[in-house]
């Protein structure tokens, strides 16, 4: 028995280098969610385009990605073969969960995809546009109930930013958190809440069916195929994007970082990546290098500000 175990340990050690994956991507969420899908789409694209011979995805779910992030920062340090998927939600989760590990402890490579926030009302609502919503909000903030995802998430942050931009106390925002997209959608359709706020994709089919009216979208400019004014056009100076990114391990060299960045760039320009994005309806908001770094810093700053204003972070 002893020999058997010894032999297997030795064999395992010998076999290890041969089986090391070219890339190992951590999805810090349960299988099926957005980050998991992003990681698996990357896996397919990297393998199909022969950028990498073997790509493994592993899931470490929990607490808005902060559990996976902490594990990644500790275990992947200095290993150029390891990647982690993350996103804007992680920025908020790091702050609200007071996570000891932050995005400073990994090496962000690039923003990959993004989705804009939409505000909708039921078709028969008396709110016709952004101005109508702002007027109601200013008159009595509590009377406007906002249905969206979990507290402190992108939807909640967007609602807080809007209130702040129009001069309403963000702590007075009557935000009703729902645990799943469908649940929030049902409450909006049933007229249980005044407005709905979530990623555009959640509402798309209902907007097209005429059940919901979209009164604003959080992009900087009008988005092709979405017939809606931006928040800015509606007189509210807020723009926000729920983005997803890929980051590398901490402690890698500049050459290693450059090599990973090159691989990622090759991936996002590939046909299989673009096809996958089209099928899933994800917007290509690729942004890399120093521009991404600057955008990230800006997002972290504004998020931390609004979370304090809403009262979720002290």
């Amino acid at each position: 028995m002893k020999h058997f175990v010894l032999a297997s340990i030795l064999g395992g050690l010998l076999a290890l280098p041969a089986h090391a994956a070219d890339y190992k991507i951590m999805a810090p969420a349960a299988p099926g969610g957005g980050w998991d899908q992003t990681a698996r789409t990357m896996q397919t694209a990297l393998q199909d385009e022969k950028i990498s011979g073997s790509v493994q995805v592993n899931n470490v779910p929990g607490a808005g990605g902060t559990i996976g992030l902490a594990q990644f920062a500790n275990q992947a340090s200095g290993d150029p073969s390891q990647l982690i998927v993350g996103g804007y939600v992680m920025v908020g989760a790091i702050l609200t969960n007071a996570s000891p590990v932050t995005l400073d402890q990994v090496t962000p490579i690039a923003r990959l995809t993004g989705e804009f926030e939409a505000i909708v009302v039921p078709a028969k609502s008396d709110i016709k546009d952004m101005a109508g919503l702002v007027a109601k909000l200013k008159a009595d903030p509590g009377s406007v109930s906002w249905g969206g995802g979990s507290a402190g998430g992108t939807d909640h942050i967007t609602a807080g930013l809007i209130a702040k931009a129009v001069g309403v106390d963000p702590t007075k925002v009557n935000y009703i958190a729902f645990s799943g997209g469908g649940e929030a959608l049902a409450a909006i359709l049933g007229g249980q809440v005044t407005v709905g706020i979530s990623g555009y994709g959640e509402f798309e089919s209902q907007i097209k069916a005429g059940e919901l009216r979209i009164i604003g979208i959080s992009s900087d400019e009008k988005v092709a195929g979405i017939d809606a004014p931006t928040f800015k056009e509606g007189g509210v100076d807020v723009s926000i994007q729920n983005w997803r990114m890929v980051a590398a391990a901490p402690g890698i060299t500049d050459e290693q970082k450059a090599a990973i960045s090159a691989d990622v760039e090759k991936m996002v320009t590939s046909k299989s990546w673009k096809d996958a994005l089209a099928t899933k309806g994800w917007a290509d908001t690729y942004l890399a290098g120093d521009e991404f770094k600057a955008q990230l810093a800006k997002d972290i700053e504004s998020t931390s500000g609004i979370l304090k204003d809403i009262g979720l972070v002290k």
């Binding site: 607490a63 902490a70 979990s150 009703i176």
Partner: peptide, 20 residues
């Protein structure tokens, strides 16, 4: 775990694994 309505951790005792 984290309270859905307020994002506050309840009875998690600072253990990240309990936040969900």
């Amino acid at each position: 775990g984290i309270d859905l309505q307020t994002g506050q951790a309840r009875l998690a005792f600072g253990i990240p694994d309990l936040l969900d």
